[in-house]
Design a protein around this nucleic acid. Structure first.
Lengths: 194, 194
DNA sequence: TAAATTCGTTAACAAAAGATAATAAATTGA
DNA sequence: TCAATTTATTATCTTTTGTTAACGAATTTA
């Protein structure tokens, strides 16, 4: 089974024939390190599936400052999801942190599949529910936990160990809602308490 | 059209017959001020639709402290959504801030409707997408905006004016991710700059 | 390889936020 | 109605965070 088919299947059972309806619209795309997959302001809507590589998602302030809000790795779906569902220009930019191989398809393809088959509609529901649950958890952590606790959670999350291994620290600081300097101090504090 | 039917219809077109499949499982429930609709740890999953009243949603810390994360008003759906979709005990409590009249139905009912009809499955997708978009916006605001800016946004959001009118300030402070004292200082600062 | 850039840490100071306590105003309930 | 509780503000002190700048280490690239 293709890794993307497998991922989709884990949300909603999609048989080989239905899968082909998506797969025949997929293309491969390789993004060089530092280049963007999705750019702020863009209207063309693509969904990507990471075969290999790492990406970061960020919002930009008026002064050009970039605020990193998410990281993507192998087997992750990557897109400006909000701009797809609301049909608005993307507010985010998604950049390759290393050379990244993607399988991509246009959002309109998946949108048509939603109309065609109930199992695809279910996939759409499940993926949105999964996203909402993740966002809620993140939001609650921002409201309830101190920065130091958020960093500790990141350290303990086996799933996110790769974040620490592959991602420059100042991006992680953004992700935690603090400055790189503050993260450096937290790390210093933690290393002394051992 | 029943106000709940109308709300559902705005996400996915549901005809009268399909609507009745939900409506026949609905019950009315009135919650007195200060009483809970959903309690932390609870497994029974109900969805409520507010006919009249105001509710607040909160998480509890180990020390008993309550962190308010959401407010609900007339025509809002209210539930421990995450615990419904993940089938886990509720982490949140939802309390009536004033006497609140609800129309309620069990989550299992809507879950069965997802299986029965594609239009219901679509409703499920649309509502999850709507939720995800709202949560992302909130999360980004927590990462990018200063507390003062978040409060200003709240002031400018016509939709949320009723929050200010009906909700005690220390709950709003929680919602903004700051202490009541800090919110009081922000208000003081803003009133002087006029 | 050498020069340039990026990255992480540290220091010093300023600004903001949290904690605690006191007080006044508003609301609630017996 | 009046005492009790809740709510909002203010003051003081402490802690944390942000800001700016400096420095060395690591990485990139010409």
């Amino acid at each position: 089974m293709h890794p993307l088919h497998q991922l989709i299947h884990s949300f909603s059972p999609i048989n080989e024939k239905s899968w082909q309806q998506l797969f025949e619209h997929c293309e491969e795309l390789t993004i060089a390190k530092g280049k963007n997959f999705i750019r702020e302001g863009e209207k063309e809507k693509y969904i990507g599936f990471i075969m290999e590589g790492t990406m970061r998602q960020y919002y930009s302030r008026d002064n050009g400052e970039e605020i990193t809000t998410y990281f993507y790795f192998e087997n992750n779906l990557v897109s400006s999801y909000i701009s797809c569902i609301n049909n608005t220009p993307s507010q985010i930019t998604i950049e390759a942190l290393e050379k990244t191989k993607l399988l991509i398809f246009n959002y309109s393809v998946i949108n048509e599949l939603y109309n065609k088959e109930k199992v695809w509609e279910r996939f759409g529901r499940k993926i949105a529910e999964y996203l909402a649950a993740g966002l809620e958890e993140r939001m609650v952590s921002l409201l309830m936990d101190k920065p130091e606790d958020r960093y500790k959670k990141l350290l303990n999350s086996t799933n996110k160990q790769k974040i620490l291994a592959r991602i420059p620290q100042h991006y992680i600081a953004n992700y935690l809602g603090i400055t790189p300097i503050s993260l450096s101090r937290i790390r210093n504090r933690l290393s002394k308490n051992k």
